[in-house]
Design a protein around this nucleic acid. Structure first.
Length: 600
RNA sequence: GGGGUCGUAGCUCAGCUGGUUAGAGCGCCGGCCUGUCACGCCGGAGGUCGCGAGUUCGAGCCUCGUCGGCCCCGCCA
């Protein structure tokens, strides 16, 4: 039978039938009631003399029974039903015989005995099975996303996401926030991610940019006097994709006037409690632990530490200044550091696994990875022969290295060595099974530096963005020691993933001018790039600050998924394409001409 | 831009050292079946081995290129 023939099954109109129960609803208390249910044929079990259908709607599954004793006509027609047909059934709820109760279904104690059947829609044979454990290639699933979304797990994910979003909106509404929209067609801003550009037909040669975030507009809304703004808004960044990065993603974006950092953090904690509770994840305990940027990078090698396990970094530079392992001593002499991680059960790793780690670290661009394995009969290490007795004792004392453990060492410029160890730490935790299940470690990282050296541009750039306020007490170092100035910026982290971040903004024009000067942005550039914000700030700007949270990532973590694609209805592939609609596509003839564009 | 990995029936996969007519499970189609819930039993259809070159007497298998999925580095203020 061909596909075309399959689709030629006669379907019936809905007529005056109306649904009066959902599939997930009926229980023993409904026995004897007459119901009309509608949904999709999830599975059929045709025994000839009797036919069972699992009927599915978004609320769950109900077993419906076609028995000739109830209706010979419905029973005869039930043989023709197929997977994913849409049907309406009318009948009576009955208790199942005791031995046929299905404990795996919430409705498993009852069934609907069908008196009348209407076939509302037929279905072609499916391109893939709608099981939660189906491993079908993702491009096939995305091409038929409407089918993929019928899988209970994805249905559950999107319904849960809706509950979380609704709860967040309710929470912010209660806190006096106003939901305001900002432009999607906006102006490209310098630095940051690559923009998606939209050419303007009525202004040939000019383009809009899609917003990377509504940053400037929400600050202007503060100047406009709205005091508290929020938006669940789409943001666009034309960068390469990852499991937790899509070209368009959703932020919970908010901004508040007349507040300091503490107010934003407390409000955000409440928001996360509301969202987690609504989605069914454990609500976090508040207040969240705090950690400075300095502590995070020193102890964990990253500004988004996963504190669910140890394996912390230990610096050894001062012990190894004079060591005969020249490869280490030279790095210290040049101003770099030697830092390490002890895995107290690291001896479980085979020589081969250790070698693979060394090779892997090299792919991160590190000079190398040294390891010291503390065996019963002494140290085993490519560097063992360089260390004398005193050094060994001091290293063990500092790091806690004991028999059965392995010490991993990385030497290099401070930032780089820490970052490599931070990544090694995560990898070790995975290999050694040190990441506990069911832990939800929320954490604030604070006191980010305001500015940092950009290696490529060889100048200072803003760590957060150019409107981030410096610490008041660090202001006098802005010219003398700009890199030591701390920012009133903060990130919220969950289990090593950055959920979002924000800052208190500069609302005083003279401070903004000094920061621009430190960034090397001259007044002409300031006007050109940020003129409208500077204008706004000059007309009575309240102190203000805010933050943005990645809603997709939040839902992913709360729901235990490993990709944000599983919490987005219509995500894109790694090449930023949509296999269902075939976007992006070449422009139609004439479209480019209308826009005043020519292919290069 | 770079690294890794995968691509064989609708789906998931097997396919030995390059050798006859490319297999399995699920799904699909037909038949039987009155208590199943991964129903069962019998039968059947279904293949551009991603695509293109090359090597070879001979390529699903080897080489090169290319397209696509996923993971990662760079990138993501």
């Amino acid at each position: 039978m061909t596909t075309e023939e399959t689709t030629q099954v006669a379907t019936e109109p809905l007529g005056d039938w109306r649904r009066d129960t959902n599939c997930g609803v009926p229980r023993l208390e409904h026995v004897g009631r007459e119901f009309t249910a509608m949904g999709w044929v999830a599975t059929r079990r045709d025994h000839g003399g009797i036919v069972f259908i699992d009927l599915r709607d978004r609320t769950g599954i109900l077993q419906v029974v076609f028995d000739p004793d109830d209706s010979p006509d419905a029973h005869r027609r039930a043989h023709g039903l197929r997977s994913e047909w849409v049907i309406a059934v009318r009948g009576r709820i009955a208790a199942r015989p005791a031995e046929t109760v299905n404990p795996d279904l919430p409705t498993g104690q009852v069934e609907l005995r069908v008196q009348e059947l209407r076939v509302l829609g037929s279905s072609r044979a499916l391109p893939f099975a709608l099981d939660d454990d189906d491993q079908t290639n993702e491009s096939v699933r995305l091409k038929h996303r409407y089918l993929d979304l019928r899988r209970p797990r994805l249905t559950h994910n999107l319904l849960s996401r809706h509950r979380a979003t609704s709860a967040v909106r309710r929470y912010l509404d209660e806190q006096g926030f106003v939901d305001l929209e900002t432009p999607i067609l906006t102006r490209s801003t310098p630095e940051g991610a690559r923009d998606y550009l939209v050419p303007s037909r009525v202004n040939p040669g000019s383009v809009y940019a899609l917003p990377q975030s509504p940053q400037i507009f929400k600050q202007i809304l503060m100047v406009a006097g709205f005091e508290r703004y929020y938006q669940v808004c789409r943001c666009f960044r034309d960068e390469d994709l990852r499991a937790d990065r899509q070209p368009e993603f959703t932020q919970i974006d908010l901004e508040m006037s007349f507040v300091g950092q503490e107010d934003v953090l407390r409000l955000t904690e409440g928001l996360l409690v509301a969202g987690a509770s609504a989605i069914g994840a454990p609500p976090p305990e508040t207040p969240f632990p705090r950690m400075t940027y300095h502590e995070a990078t020193t102890r964990f090698g990253t500004d988004r530490p996963d504190t669910r396990f140890g394996l912390e970094l230990v610096e050894l530079s001062d012990l190894l200044r004079e060591t005969k392992a020249r490869i280490l001593a030279e790095v210290v002499a040049r101003g770099g550091i030697v830092s390490g991680i002890v895995a107290d059960d690291g001896a479980r790793l085979s020589r081969r696994e250790l070698d693979e780690l060394v090779a892997w670290v090299q792919t991160l661009g590190a000079g190398g990875l040294a390891w010291i394995r503390a065996n019963e009969d002494g140290w085993q290490s490519p560097l063992a022969k360089f260390f004398d007795e005193g050094e060994r004792e001091r290293i063990c004392e500092r790091t806690g290295l004991r028999v059965g453990g392995v010490l991993f060492l990385v030497a290099g410029p401070r930032k780089h060595a820490q970052s490599v160890l931070g990544q090694l730490r995560l990898r070790l935790a995975q290999m050694l099974g040190k990441i506990p299940e069911g832990r939800w470690n929320y954490l604030w990282v604070t006191e980010f530096p305001l500015l940092e050296e950009n290696a490529e541009a060889k100048r200072l750039v803003a760590v957060h963005h150019p409107f981030t306020a410096p610490f008041e007490e660090d202001l006098d170092k802005l010219e003398s020691a700009p890199e030591s100035v701390r920012a009133l910026a903060y990130d919220v982290v969950l289990n090593g993933t950055e959920l979002g971040g924000g800052s208190i903004r500069i609302h005083r024009p003279e401070v903004q001018a000094r920061v621009f000067r430190a960034l090397g942005i001259d007044p002409e550039q300031q006007r050109e790039q940020f003129g409208f914000l500077l204008d706004a700030l000059s007309f009575g700007a309240p102190p203000h600050g805010g933050l943005a949270l990645g809603l997709d990532r939040l839902c992913m973590l709360w729901l235990g998924e490993s990709s944000i694609r599983d919490v987005i209805a219509f995500p894109k592939t790694q090449r930023a394409a949509d296999p269902m609609s075939d976007a992006p596509a070449p422009p139609a003839p004439g479209q480019l001409r209308d826009l005043g564009l020519r292919p290069i």
